[in-house]
Nucleic acid binder design. Structure first.
Length: 399
RNA sequence: GGGGAGGUGGCUGAGUGGACAAAAGCAGCAGACUGUAAAUCUGCCGGCGAAAGCCUACGUAGGUUCGAAUCCUGCCCUCCCCA
Protein backbone atom coordinates (compact mmCIF):
# COMPACT_ATOMS: atom_id res chain seq x y z
CA UNK A 1 0.00 0.00 0.00
CA UNK A 2 1.11 3.51 -0.58
CA UNK A 3 2.02 5.58 2.43
CA UNK A 4 1.35 9.28 2.73
CA UNK A 5 4.09 11.84 2.92
CA UNK A 6 5.99 11.27 6.19
CA UNK A 7 5.71 14.90 7.20
CA UNK A 8 1.96 14.72 6.76
CA UNK A 9 1.83 11.50 8.73
CA UNK A 10 3.82 13.09 11.51
CA UNK A 11 1.31 15.90 11.66
CA UNK A 12 -1.52 13.46 12.20
CA UNK A 13 0.42 11.58 14.82
CA UNK A 14 1.37 14.71 16.67
CA UNK A 15 -2.21 15.85 17.20
CA UNK A 16 -3.17 15.44 20.82
CA UNK A 17 0.10 13.88 21.94
CA UNK A 18 2.06 15.19 24.85
CA UNK A 19 5.47 14.25 23.50
CA UNK A 20 7.23 12.17 20.88
CA UNK A 21 10.67 11.04 21.92
CA UNK A 22 12.64 11.48 19.79
CA UNK A 23 10.57 13.06 17.09
CA UNK A 24 13.37 13.13 14.48
CA UNK A 25 13.67 9.38 14.74
CA UNK A 26 9.99 8.92 14.11
CA UNK A 27 10.30 10.93 10.96
CA UNK A 28 13.22 8.78 9.83
CA UNK A 29 11.24 5.65 10.53
CA UNK A 30 8.27 6.95 8.59
CA UNK A 31 10.53 7.76 5.66
CA UNK A 32 12.11 4.32 5.71
CA UNK A 33 8.70 2.72 5.96
CA UNK A 34 7.53 4.50 2.88
CA UNK A 35 10.72 3.81 0.96
CA UNK A 36 10.52 0.07 1.70
CA UNK A 37 6.74 -0.08 1.55
CA UNK A 38 6.70 -1.67 4.98
CA UNK A 39 4.30 -0.62 7.76
CA UNK A 40 5.68 0.36 11.14
CA UNK A 41 5.02 -1.90 14.09
CA UNK A 42 3.26 0.11 16.71
CA UNK A 43 2.99 -1.30 20.20
CA UNK A 44 0.69 -0.47 23.04
CA UNK A 45 0.37 -2.66 26.05
CA UNK A 46 -2.37 -2.89 28.64
CA UNK A 47 -2.26 -5.02 31.73
CA UNK A 48 -5.53 -6.85 32.25
CA UNK A 49 -5.88 -5.83 35.88
CA UNK A 50 -9.55 -4.95 35.60
CA UNK A 51 -12.33 -6.14 33.32
CA UNK A 52 -13.05 -2.78 31.82
CA UNK A 53 -11.15 -0.45 29.58
CA UNK A 54 -12.15 3.17 29.92
CA UNK A 55 -11.81 6.46 28.10
CA UNK A 56 -8.29 6.90 29.46
CA UNK A 57 -7.30 3.83 27.49
CA UNK A 58 -9.55 5.14 24.75
CA UNK A 59 -7.19 8.03 24.11
CA UNK A 60 -4.39 5.61 23.41
CA UNK A 61 -6.58 3.35 21.31
CA UNK A 62 -7.64 6.35 19.27
CA UNK A 63 -4.06 7.19 18.52
CA UNK A 64 -3.38 3.60 17.55
CA UNK A 65 -6.27 3.90 15.19
CA UNK A 66 -4.61 6.96 13.65
CA UNK A 67 -1.54 4.86 12.96
CA UNK A 68 -3.70 2.22 11.33
CA UNK A 69 -5.39 4.78 9.16
CA UNK A 70 -1.94 5.82 8.02
CA UNK A 71 -1.31 2.22 7.03
CA UNK A 72 0.71 0.96 9.94
CA UNK A 73 0.33 -2.18 11.96
CA UNK A 74 -0.75 -2.28 15.56
CA UNK A 75 0.64 -4.82 17.97
CA UNK A 76 -1.76 -4.81 20.84
CA UNK A 77 -0.07 -6.38 23.80
CA UNK A 78 -2.09 -7.86 26.60
CA UNK A 79 0.17 -7.86 29.60
CA UNK A 80 -1.08 -11.05 31.12
CA UNK A 81 2.31 -11.70 32.66
CA UNK A 82 3.05 -8.12 33.66
CA UNK A 83 -0.39 -7.80 35.25
CA UNK A 84 0.92 -10.33 37.67
CA UNK A 85 3.85 -8.13 38.60
CA UNK A 86 1.86 -4.93 38.89
CA UNK A 87 2.99 -1.74 37.22
CA UNK A 88 4.27 0.71 39.81
CA UNK A 89 4.05 3.67 37.42
CA UNK A 90 2.41 6.63 39.07
CA UNK A 91 1.36 4.52 42.02
CA UNK A 92 1.70 5.62 45.58
CA UNK A 93 1.57 2.06 46.83
CA UNK A 94 1.94 -1.51 45.69
CA UNK A 95 -0.86 -2.78 43.50
CA UNK A 96 -3.01 -5.42 45.06
CA UNK A 97 -2.16 -8.75 43.52
CA UNK A 98 -4.54 -10.39 41.16
CA UNK A 99 -5.31 -14.01 40.45
CA UNK A 100 -4.54 -15.93 37.27
CA UNK A 101 -8.22 -16.60 36.64
CA UNK A 102 -9.05 -12.91 36.79
CA UNK A 103 -6.25 -12.09 34.40
CA UNK A 104 -7.52 -14.59 31.88
CA UNK A 105 -11.07 -13.38 32.22
CA UNK A 106 -10.07 -9.76 31.84
CA UNK A 107 -7.91 -10.48 28.82
CA UNK A 108 -10.92 -11.82 27.00
CA UNK A 109 -12.99 -8.74 27.66
CA UNK A 110 -10.11 -6.58 26.43
CA UNK A 111 -10.05 -8.28 23.10
CA UNK A 112 -13.69 -7.48 22.60
CA UNK A 113 -13.41 -3.90 23.77
CA UNK A 114 -10.42 -2.80 21.73
CA UNK A 115 -12.13 -3.52 18.47
CA UNK A 116 -14.65 -0.83 19.21
CA UNK A 117 -11.82 1.44 18.19
CA UNK A 118 -9.21 -0.55 16.31
CA UNK A 119 -9.23 -1.98 12.83
CA UNK A 120 -9.28 -5.74 13.13
CA UNK A 121 -7.38 -6.29 9.92
CA UNK A 122 -4.40 -4.26 10.98
CA UNK A 123 -4.18 -5.47 14.54
CA UNK A 124 -2.24 -8.29 16.07
CA UNK A 125 -3.08 -9.25 19.60
CA UNK A 126 -0.24 -10.69 21.62
CA UNK A 127 0.21 -11.81 25.20
CA UNK A 128 3.50 -11.29 26.90
CA UNK A 129 3.27 -14.48 28.91
CA UNK A 130 4.21 -16.18 25.66
CA UNK A 131 7.83 -15.17 26.04
CA UNK A 132 8.00 -14.07 29.65
CA UNK A 133 6.86 -17.21 31.39
CA UNK A 134 9.69 -19.11 29.75
CA UNK A 135 12.31 -16.45 30.20
CA UNK A 136 15.63 -18.06 30.94
CA UNK A 137 17.06 -16.95 34.31
CA UNK A 138 20.41 -16.25 32.78
CA UNK A 139 18.91 -13.97 30.21
CA UNK A 140 16.84 -12.33 32.88
CA UNK A 141 19.92 -11.58 34.95
CA UNK A 142 21.44 -10.12 31.85
CA UNK A 143 18.53 -7.69 31.68
CA UNK A 144 18.91 -6.66 35.29
CA UNK A 145 22.51 -5.68 34.72
CA UNK A 146 21.39 -3.18 32.09
CA UNK A 147 19.68 -0.99 34.63
CA UNK A 148 21.11 0.95 37.49
CA UNK A 149 19.17 1.09 40.75
CA UNK A 150 19.76 4.79 41.19
CA UNK A 151 18.14 5.40 37.85
CA UNK A 152 15.02 3.56 38.86
CA UNK A 153 15.00 5.23 42.22
CA UNK A 154 15.18 8.58 40.46
CA UNK A 155 11.72 8.03 39.15
CA UNK A 156 9.27 10.36 40.72
CA UNK A 157 6.84 7.70 41.90
CA UNK A 158 9.54 5.62 43.56
CA UNK A 159 11.49 8.45 45.09
CA UNK A 160 8.30 9.85 46.53
CA UNK A 161 7.36 6.57 48.08
CA UNK A 162 10.88 6.14 49.36
CA UNK A 163 10.87 9.58 50.93
CA UNK A 164 7.48 9.06 52.49
CA UNK A 165 8.43 5.70 53.86
CA UNK A 166 5.94 3.73 51.81
CA UNK A 167 7.06 0.22 50.97
CA UNK A 168 8.50 -0.62 47.58
CA UNK A 169 8.74 -4.25 46.70
CA UNK A 170 11.60 -5.57 44.61
CA UNK A 171 9.13 -7.01 42.16
CA UNK A 172 7.99 -3.49 41.32
CA UNK A 173 11.55 -2.59 40.44
CA UNK A 174 11.52 -5.38 37.94
CA UNK A 175 8.41 -4.24 36.14
CA UNK A 176 9.99 -1.69 33.79
CA UNK A 177 12.60 -4.22 32.70
CA UNK A 178 9.99 -6.70 31.73
CA UNK A 179 7.99 -4.17 29.77
CA UNK A 180 11.12 -3.03 28.01
CA UNK A 181 11.93 -6.61 27.15
CA UNK A 182 8.53 -6.95 25.49
CA UNK A 183 9.58 -4.34 22.98
CA UNK A 184 12.65 -6.40 22.17
CA UNK A 185 10.55 -9.51 21.61
CA UNK A 186 8.10 -7.62 19.47
CA UNK A 187 10.65 -5.66 17.43
CA UNK A 188 8.58 -2.51 17.81
CA UNK A 189 9.20 0.67 15.92
CA UNK A 190 6.94 2.76 18.08
CA UNK A 191 5.41 2.36 21.51
CA UNK A 192 2.41 4.32 22.70
CA UNK A 193 1.56 5.07 26.29
CA UNK A 194 0.48 7.67 28.78
CA UNK A 195 3.05 10.13 30.04
CA UNK A 196 3.33 8.01 33.17
CA UNK A 197 4.90 5.37 30.96
CA UNK A 198 7.85 7.54 30.04
CA UNK A 199 10.44 5.61 31.97
CA UNK A 200 9.23 2.18 30.93
CA UNK A 201 8.99 3.05 27.28
CA UNK A 202 12.34 4.78 27.13
CA UNK A 203 13.95 1.83 28.84
CA UNK A 204 12.67 -0.23 25.94
CA UNK A 205 14.96 1.82 23.73
CA UNK A 206 18.01 0.87 25.76
CA UNK A 207 17.08 -2.76 25.70
CA UNK A 208 16.49 -2.83 21.98
CA UNK A 209 19.81 -1.15 21.38
CA UNK A 210 21.45 -3.78 23.55
CA UNK A 211 19.89 -6.50 21.43
CA UNK A 212 21.07 -4.83 18.26
CA UNK A 213 17.67 -3.50 17.23
CA UNK A 214 16.79 -0.04 16.13
CA UNK A 215 15.26 1.61 19.23
CA UNK A 216 11.56 2.34 19.33
CA UNK A 217 10.14 5.83 19.39
CA UNK A 218 7.97 6.73 22.35
CA UNK A 219 4.67 8.45 21.64
CA UNK A 220 3.20 9.85 24.84
CA UNK A 221 -0.41 10.77 25.36
CA UNK A 222 -1.86 12.88 28.10
CA UNK A 223 -3.39 11.29 31.15
CA UNK A 224 -7.13 11.74 31.21
CA UNK A 225 -8.70 13.00 34.40
CA UNK A 226 -11.63 11.03 35.71
CA UNK A 227 -15.19 12.29 35.94
CA UNK A 228 -14.33 13.92 39.27
CA UNK A 229 -12.00 16.18 37.33
CA UNK A 230 -9.15 15.76 39.76
CA UNK A 231 -7.60 12.32 39.84
CA UNK A 232 -6.64 10.30 36.83
CA UNK A 233 -9.35 8.14 35.39
CA UNK A 234 -9.18 4.71 36.86
CA UNK A 235 -11.42 1.86 37.67
CA UNK A 236 -10.30 1.66 41.26
CA UNK A 237 -11.22 5.27 41.91
CA UNK A 238 -14.65 4.77 40.38
CA UNK A 239 -14.34 7.92 38.30
CA UNK A 240 -14.26 6.26 34.92
CA UNK A 241 -16.38 5.87 31.84
CA UNK A 242 -16.01 2.38 30.45
CA UNK A 243 -15.69 1.71 26.74
CA UNK A 244 -18.13 -1.12 27.16
CA UNK A 245 -20.88 0.77 28.96
CA UNK A 246 -24.33 1.32 27.55
CA UNK A 247 -25.07 4.44 25.50
CA UNK A 248 -27.29 5.73 28.31
CA UNK A 249 -24.60 5.32 30.92
CA UNK A 250 -21.89 6.90 28.83
CA UNK A 251 -24.12 9.79 27.92
CA UNK A 252 -25.22 10.28 31.51
CA UNK A 253 -21.71 10.14 32.86
CA UNK A 254 -20.50 12.60 30.26
CA UNK A 255 -23.27 14.98 31.27
CA UNK A 256 -22.34 14.66 34.91
CA UNK A 257 -18.87 16.12 34.51
CA UNK A 258 -18.24 19.70 35.53
CA UNK A 259 -18.16 22.48 32.96
CA UNK A 260 -14.44 23.00 33.49
CA UNK A 261 -13.64 19.40 32.88
CA UNK A 262 -15.77 19.38 29.77
CA UNK A 263 -13.26 21.55 27.92
CA UNK A 264 -10.42 19.26 28.80
CA UNK A 265 -12.47 16.31 27.49
CA UNK A 266 -13.26 18.23 24.35
CA UNK A 267 -9.58 18.64 23.74
CA UNK A 268 -8.67 15.03 24.39
CA UNK A 269 -11.69 13.05 23.27
CA UNK A 270 -13.38 14.92 20.49
CA UNK A 271 -12.27 15.59 16.97
CA UNK A 272 -13.04 19.30 17.29
CA UNK A 273 -10.17 21.60 16.60
CA UNK A 274 -9.28 24.52 18.82
CA UNK A 275 -11.18 26.99 16.72
CA UNK A 276 -14.37 25.02 16.97
CA UNK A 277 -13.88 24.64 20.71
CA UNK A 278 -13.43 28.37 21.12
CA UNK A 279 -16.68 28.90 19.35
CA UNK A 280 -18.46 26.38 21.55
CA UNK A 281 -17.28 28.25 24.60
CA UNK A 282 -19.48 31.15 23.61
CA UNK A 283 -22.57 28.95 23.50
CA UNK A 284 -24.62 27.55 26.31
CA UNK A 285 -22.49 25.11 28.34
CA UNK A 286 -25.24 22.54 28.47
CA UNK A 287 -25.51 22.40 24.71
CA UNK A 288 -21.76 22.09 24.43
CA UNK A 289 -21.79 19.26 26.91
CA UNK A 290 -24.57 17.48 25.04
CA UNK A 291 -22.55 17.75 21.86
CA UNK A 292 -19.58 16.14 23.55
CA UNK A 293 -21.66 13.40 25.09
CA UNK A 294 -23.19 12.68 21.69
CA UNK A 295 -19.82 12.49 20.03
CA UNK A 296 -18.38 10.08 22.56
CA UNK A 297 -21.41 7.81 22.44
CA UNK A 298 -21.37 7.77 18.64
CA UNK A 299 -17.74 6.90 18.77
CA UNK A 300 -18.20 3.93 21.10
CA UNK A 301 -21.59 2.87 19.77
CA UNK A 302 -23.23 4.67 16.85
CA UNK A 303 -25.03 7.87 16.01
CA UNK A 304 -28.45 6.34 16.38
CA UNK A 305 -27.76 5.19 19.95
CA UNK A 306 -26.33 8.58 20.77
CA UNK A 307 -29.53 10.30 19.75
CA UNK A 308 -31.60 7.82 21.71
CA UNK A 309 -29.43 8.26 24.77
CA UNK A 310 -29.87 11.98 24.47
CA UNK A 311 -33.62 11.75 24.26
CA UNK A 312 -33.59 9.43 27.22
CA UNK A 313 -31.48 11.84 29.19
CA UNK A 314 -33.73 14.75 28.40
CA UNK A 315 -36.88 13.04 29.58
CA UNK A 316 -35.17 11.82 32.73
CA UNK A 317 -33.46 14.98 33.81
CA UNK A 318 -34.46 18.03 31.84
CA UNK A 319 -38.14 17.25 31.75
CA UNK A 320 -37.98 15.10 34.84
CA UNK A 321 -40.53 12.75 33.46
CA UNK A 322 -40.54 9.02 33.36
CA UNK A 323 -38.64 7.56 30.38
CA UNK A 324 -40.69 5.48 27.97
CA UNK A 325 -38.21 2.67 27.67
CA UNK A 326 -37.44 2.18 31.35
CA UNK A 327 -36.19 -1.25 32.24
CA UNK A 328 -38.84 -3.74 33.20
CA UNK A 329 -38.34 -5.72 36.35
CA UNK A 330 -40.32 -8.60 37.70
CA UNK A 331 -40.81 -8.64 41.40
CA UNK A 332 -42.00 -11.50 43.52
CA UNK A 333 -43.16 -9.88 46.72
CA UNK A 334 -41.93 -11.40 49.96
CA UNK A 335 -43.74 -8.68 51.83
CA UNK A 336 -45.72 -5.64 50.82
CA UNK A 337 -43.23 -3.22 52.33
CA UNK A 338 -41.63 -0.73 50.02
CA UNK A 339 -38.19 -1.23 51.58
CA UNK A 340 -38.17 -4.82 50.44
CA UNK A 341 -39.43 -3.77 47.06
CA UNK A 342 -36.56 -1.34 46.60
CA UNK A 343 -33.93 -3.89 47.56
CA UNK A 344 -35.48 -6.56 45.42
CA UNK A 345 -35.71 -4.46 42.34
CA UNK A 346 -32.84 -1.97 42.43
CA UNK A 347 -29.36 -2.49 41.06
CA UNK A 348 -27.82 0.28 43.10
CA UNK A 349 -29.33 -0.34 46.50
CA UNK A 350 -28.23 -3.52 48.17
CA UNK A 351 -28.85 -3.22 51.90
CA UNK A 352 -31.91 -2.47 53.93
CA UNK A 353 -30.28 0.42 55.74
CA UNK A 354 -29.42 2.05 52.46
CA UNK A 355 -32.94 1.57 51.15
CA UNK A 356 -34.49 3.01 54.28
CA UNK A 357 -32.26 6.01 54.17
CA UNK A 358 -33.08 6.67 50.56
CA UNK A 359 -36.80 6.32 51.15
CA UNK A 360 -37.02 8.41 54.29
CA UNK A 361 -35.08 11.17 52.58
CA UNK A 362 -37.51 11.34 49.72
CA UNK A 363 -35.69 9.42 47.03
CA UNK A 364 -38.50 7.05 46.16
CA UNK A 365 -41.36 7.83 43.83
CA UNK A 366 -43.96 5.25 42.82
CA UNK A 367 -46.39 6.20 40.07
CA UNK A 368 -45.59 9.85 40.56
CA UNK A 369 -46.16 9.78 44.29
CA UNK A 370 -43.46 10.20 46.88
CA UNK A 371 -43.19 7.55 49.58
CA UNK A 372 -41.21 8.53 52.64
CA UNK A 373 -42.10 5.85 55.15
CA UNK A 374 -39.98 2.74 54.59
CA UNK A 375 -42.62 0.59 56.23
CA UNK A 376 -45.53 1.68 54.16
CA UNK A 377 -46.88 -0.67 51.53
CA UNK A 378 -46.66 -0.35 47.81
CA UNK A 379 -49.85 0.01 45.74
CA UNK A 380 -51.93 -3.04 45.19
CA UNK A 381 -51.53 -3.19 41.43
CA UNK A 382 -49.90 -5.63 39.09
CA UNK A 383 -47.55 -3.06 37.63
CA UNK A 384 -46.26 0.41 38.39
CA UNK A 385 -43.51 2.88 37.60
CA UNK A 386 -40.88 3.45 40.20
CA UNK A 387 -38.07 5.97 40.52
CA UNK A 388 -35.24 5.16 42.88
CA UNK A 389 -32.85 7.99 43.65
CA UNK A 390 -31.82 10.24 40.84
CA UNK A 391 -30.95 7.77 38.18
CA UNK A 392 -32.91 4.60 38.46
CA UNK A 393 -36.20 4.34 36.64
CA UNK A 394 -37.98 1.00 36.53
CA UNK A 395 -41.24 -0.52 35.46
CA UNK A 396 -42.06 -3.08 38.07
CA UNK A 397 -44.28 -6.02 37.31
CA UNK A 398 -45.61 -7.94 40.28
CA UNK A 399 -45.52 -11.67 39.82
C1' G B 1 21.17 -10.18 62.88
C1' G B 2 20.32 -5.92 66.70
C1' G B 3 17.33 -1.66 68.23
C1' G B 4 13.00 1.55 67.71
C1' A B 5 7.96 2.97 65.78
C1' G B 6 3.49 1.23 63.97
C1' G B 7 -1.06 -1.68 61.60
C1' U B 8 -8.34 1.78 63.37
C1' G B 9 -14.45 2.06 58.93
C1' G B 10 -13.78 3.05 51.08
C1' C B 11 -9.44 6.67 52.23
C1' U B 12 -6.81 10.21 55.67
C1' G B 13 -6.73 10.14 60.84
C1' A B 14 -8.27 10.83 66.49
C1' G B 15 -8.99 7.47 70.26
C1' U B 16 -4.57 4.15 75.39
C1' G B 17 -9.74 -0.46 80.04
C1' G B 18 -16.40 1.03 80.46
C1' A B 19 -19.43 7.25 78.17
C1' C B 20 -16.94 3.48 71.23
C1' A B 21 -20.44 1.31 65.81
C1' A B 22 -15.46 4.39 67.25
C1' A B 23 -14.02 12.25 66.77
C1' A B 24 -12.81 15.06 62.45
C1' G B 25 -12.02 15.54 57.27
C1' C B 26 -12.52 13.40 52.36
C1' A B 27 -15.31 10.17 49.29
C1' G B 28 -20.39 8.19 48.74
C1' C B 29 -25.92 8.52 48.92
C1' A B 30 -30.63 11.42 49.24
C1' G B 31 -33.09 16.22 49.27
C1' A B 32 -33.14 21.66 48.05
C1' C B 33 -31.15 25.02 44.43
C1' U B 34 -29.63 25.03 38.92
C1' G B 35 -28.63 25.01 32.99
C1' U B 36 -27.21 18.35 33.03
C1' A B 37 -23.49 19.46 36.25
C1' A B 38 -20.16 22.05 39.54
C1' A B 39 -20.41 25.15 43.86
C1' U B 40 -23.53 25.88 48.15
C1' C B 41 -27.00 24.38 51.97
C1' U B 42 -29.67 20.21 54.74
C1' G B 43 -29.87 15.16 56.16
C1' C B 44 -27.80 10.30 56.09
C1' C B 45 -23.55 7.39 55.94
C1' G B 46 -21.56 -1.29 59.31
C1' G B 47 -25.73 -5.17 59.17
C1' C B 48 -30.57 -6.73 61.06
C1' G B 49 -34.83 -4.58 63.68
C1' A B 50 -41.00 -0.51 64.15
C1' A B 51 -38.31 0.11 68.55
C1' A B 52 -35.75 -1.57 72.76
C1' G B 53 -31.91 -3.96 71.24
C1' C B 54 -28.96 -7.75 68.92
C1' C B 55 -24.90 -9.18 65.67
C1' U B 56 -20.31 -8.18 63.08
C1' A B 57 -15.97 -4.81 63.04
C1' C B 58 -10.04 -1.39 65.17
C1' G B 59 -3.76 -6.72 61.12
C1' U B 60 -4.31 -12.07 62.91
C1' A B 61 -4.74 -16.09 66.68
C1' G B 62 -5.13 -16.75 71.63
C1' G B 63 -5.18 -14.80 76.85
C1' U B 64 -6.19 -11.38 81.26
C1' U B 65 -10.80 -8.83 82.88
C1' C B 66 -17.54 -8.29 85.08
C1' G B 67 -15.95 -5.39 80.62
C1' A B 68 -10.69 -4.77 75.47
C1' A B 69 -9.64 -0.74 69.57
C1' U B 70 -7.24 0.18 74.30
C1' C B 71 -3.48 -4.58 78.77
C1' C B 72 -0.47 -9.48 77.86
C1' U B 73 1.57 -13.45 74.44
C1' G B 74 2.45 -15.75 69.68
C1' C B 75 2.17 -14.94 64.45
C1' C B 76 1.80 -11.88 59.90
C1' C B 77 2.77 -7.18 57.66
C1' U B 78 4.94 -2.00 57.15
C1' C B 79 8.40 1.95 58.24
C1' C B 80 13.03 4.02 60.48
C1' C B 81 18.11 3.49 62.52
C1' C B 82 22.42 0.24 63.02
C1' A B 83 24.96 -4.24 60.87
Amino acid sequence: MAFADPKEQLKVIRRGTEAIIPEEELLLKLEASRANDRPLKVKAGFDPTSPDLHLGHGIILKKLRDFQTLGHEVLFLIGDFTAYIGDPSGRSETRPSISKEEIIKNSRTYERQVFKVLDRKKTQILSNSRWLSNLDPEEFLGLTSLVNVSRILDRDDFSKRYREGVSISLREFIYPLVQAYDSVQMHCDVELGGTDQTFNILLGRDFQRHYGQSPQVGVFLPILEGTDGVKKMSKSLGNYIGLDESPQDIYGKMMSISDDLMWRYYLLLSTCNEKKIRKLRTEHPMDAKKGLAREVVSWLHDTQSALEAERDFETKFSKRSFPEDAKEKDYVPGSRKIVDLVIGVSDSVSTKGEAKRLISQGGLVIDGEKYTDPNSEFPDKIAFEIKIGKKEFLKVVIK
